[in-house]
Amino acid sequence: MSALSGTLTLLNRNLREGLRSPVIAFVFPVLFPLFLITLVASSYERMAFIPGFPVTPYAAYMAPGLLLFTGMMGSGYSATALVLDAQSGFLDRLRLQPVRPLALLLSRLLFDAIRVVPAGLVVLGVSVLLGARIDSGPAGVVLLLVLCSFWSVAYGGVFYVVALRTRNPQAPLAMAPLSVLLLFASPAAAPPYLLQDWLASLTTWNPFTYVIEGIRALMTGPESGTVTEALLKALAVLVGLTVVTQIFVVPAFARLVGD
């Protein structure tokens, strides 16, 4: 109970702060995916006419990847904020209050989960206008957003590792291109059979691939197998990635708060 109320109090602070300087945490996640879906989706429109292309129109194919992209834009915002708190001494002030150190970290992770929800809704809405479908209905929409939030947290872990290891608030910025790499080495923009062989085999090693396929299953149906199978795979990857990153984050954070 006490850990929970502390977490919520701190989450409230994070949200308010995020809204007061909204560009990175809230605007980027909408801006870039919208830019991609309107520009790229229309210029690649004819790709969907290639024989064997799984989904038409092209915007419907690209929507899952872009939805997840919201969770990758603005990643590092929280990690940077955490390191800035440490540098300013604000973290010391918080440490003197009866609040578990874990609540400090948890409130940041929850913020990452929440901040992508509005962006996810906008991107989803625009995708639908451009021809994307959500076969799984309203429950699917909820699931889509949950996966999107979860992805934001799992992927964001990488940024915490970098920020906490270097204790440099700028360091997460240097990690931003990672999202582009993951995007290209995945079936986000084109199905693997249209990719170079080496790239296609790379996609099977990319965690992003499985989360995209989970989302795709909810929108236009599974690539292979059942929706449940695709979702379970996505979930396994998300849990795995979160666990792996947090294994590094939690001790680094504990060192930061001197515990």
Partner: peptide
């Protein structure tokens, strides 16, 4: 105890 730190550690956005 109460502590007032040397660099008044405050959050500029609050």
């Amino acid at each position: 105890i109460g502590l007032s730190l040397q660099q008044a550690a405050l959050d500029p956005l609050m």
